[in-house]
Every structure is written in C-alpha cells, then in structure tokens.
Design a protein around this nucleic acid. Structure first.
Ligand SMILES: [Zn+2]
Ligand SMILES: [Zn+2]
Ligand SMILES: [Zn+2]
Ligand SMILES: [Zn+2]
Lengths: 132, 132
DNA sequence: CTTGACCTTGTAGTGGCTACAAGGTGCATA
DNA sequence: TATGCACCTTGTAGCCACTACAAGGTCAAG
C-alpha cells in the first residue's frame, strides 16, 4: 500500500513516515514502477509500534532501542523493563514539576484582586516578591 | 555590571541573555570602552522577571506580553489574569496527559513477568495488544 | 610577560516533527 | 482525449528556547 494508506492505518502522518525513513528508524520500503513507496503489513506494524511508544512519551532513541529489542525473541526482557521503568521515572518527575508550577500559578491567580497592574499580585510575584 | 555577574545574580546564563537581546526581549545595554555589555539593576530585574515566568512555564510570547503589561501601571490587570489563567489551563492539560501516560506505563510494567522478550507484556502492548 | 578568567561575534546543533515548493503519477469524468 | 483532482516525489526551511562551540579580544594578578 502507498504512504497515505499506511498513514491512515497507523495514525502516523505521511511526512512523519518519510522522516522516520530518513532517520533510519524505519527501513525503506520497495518502490512501485512510478517510484511510490510500497508498504506491507510489517512496516505498518512497526509504525503502530512506534506510534504507541511515542504516545507513551518514549524518546526516539528509546523507541529505536525498543524496536531492536522487540526482534530478539529469546533474550530476557530485563532491558525492556528497565527502559520502561526509567521512562516512567522521568514521566513522574515531569508530573511533579508541573504540579509545582500549577500550584504556584493557582496561588498567584487566587491572590490577584483584579485591580490595576501596579497592584497586581501576579506581576508582583513575577517581579520580585519572593526569593532574595 | 558585566554579563557574567548579572547572569549569576539572575540565574539566567550569559548565552541566554545574549539570545534574549538578539530576540529583542531584553533591550541592549550600553557598552564599556572595551565593548563589554554593562548592565544596571533594571536589566537584572527584567531578567529575574523573565526567569520566574519561564520557570512557571510561560512561553516566550507570553513573557513578552507580561513584560509589556508590567509597564502599564494604570491599566486593569484583566489581561494579565486571563493570560495566567490560560496558561494554568495548559499546564493542567499537560499534567492530565502525563498522568494517563504514567498509568499506562505502570500497568505495562506491572504486567511484565520478567520472561523472554517474546513473552514480554511491554513489547506485546506496544506491538498490537490493544486497539484495532 | 604570561596565564587565566572573562568577554565578543557568528554559526550550527538539539528533538521531533511540520510546512512548504515545485513537480510527477494515476484515475475518474466530460 | 483532455482535464481535473488527489495523491505521490524530492528538498529545504521553520518551529521552540535555548546550548555549544570556534576564533578571537580584554583585563587583572602574579
Ligand atoms: Zn524514556
Ligand atoms: Zn491581577
Ligand atoms: Zn502560556
Ligand atoms: Zn517484560
């Protein structure tokens, strides 16, 4: 099938698929007589794999690693697990950082009494209010 | 003071300060005889403002807007508030998205029983297990 | 006089796409 | 047959907010 169809089936845009090919993460498929990329089900499966991993926030290097590992059926999956655990860790850190942002933003917004800018607690907080 | 000192005082790296100047977000300071940038307390205050806003996750366009608004003392702070609220909203969306990631990752990791890759539930999930 | 910390400019790289531009191909319809 | 239209091709540049590096200038201490 052509790139547009595999794009629809996998949820990965055609431009992105070409990008993955350039980057070497997806092997180049055969071409039709008219030089169109001609994908089979294997490539579609790989793209689905990539999209799921990306949706879970794995970086492209992580995805590369996961793809390689996924082909080594007989090896232990310890490497997969530790990669996933490390990633979960990162996600949790990111959540924690964003929750701090959220709390600070909420406090700022709550403290503002809709006055003039010179009295605005939001501007005040940003300008100098806390810290040395 | 020179760029290194203001960098230390504000927590904004020298390279970043020069970058802000190129981008027009920070006005170019006077220069010493030897062509070094010579900052006063106002620029330092602006940089602190920028850093605090960035730490709270505001985008550079947002920061620009906030800086402009911060100079208009007599206007109502409604624009500031709505900008902050919109940003808080985005942060909350991001947290929600990351929590979904986290939960899915946790489930995947918990379901794996440290076997071979061909039996790994993490690889399975990525490859095809859920969805059409 | 040399060392080393600091400063200057400019350019290119990061991640992960996304958006063109300019042209070729394939199929349905008038 | 012609025409339109959707689709495909390549290559390049842009996005965000920096960050790194190269090649050189300046200044105070020892
Ligand atoms: Zn990761
Ligand atoms: Zn306010
Ligand atoms: Zn914002
Ligand atoms: Zn496993």
């Amino acid at each position: 099938m052509r790139i547009g169809e595999v794009a629809r089936k996998t949820g990965v845009k055609a431009e992105t698929i070409r990008f993955y090919e350039r980057e070497g993460i997806l092997t180049a498929p055969p071409r039709t007589r008219s030089n169109y990329r001609d994908y089979g089900p294997d490539e579609a499966a790989t793209l689905t794999f990539i999209r799921r991993a990306r949706d879970l926030g794995f970086s492209m290097p992580d995805v590369r690693e996961l793809l390689e590992l996924s082909n080594e059926d007989d090896r232990s999956c310890a490497a997969v697990d530790s990669l996933a655990r490390a990633h979960l860790d990162q996600v949790e850190r990111k959540i924690a950082a964003l929750q701090i942002m959220r709390d600070e933003l909420s406090r700022m917004i709550a403290s503002c009494e809709q006055d003039t800018i010179s009295d605005c607690r939001i501007i005040d907080t940003l300008a100098a209010s806390h810290g040395p």
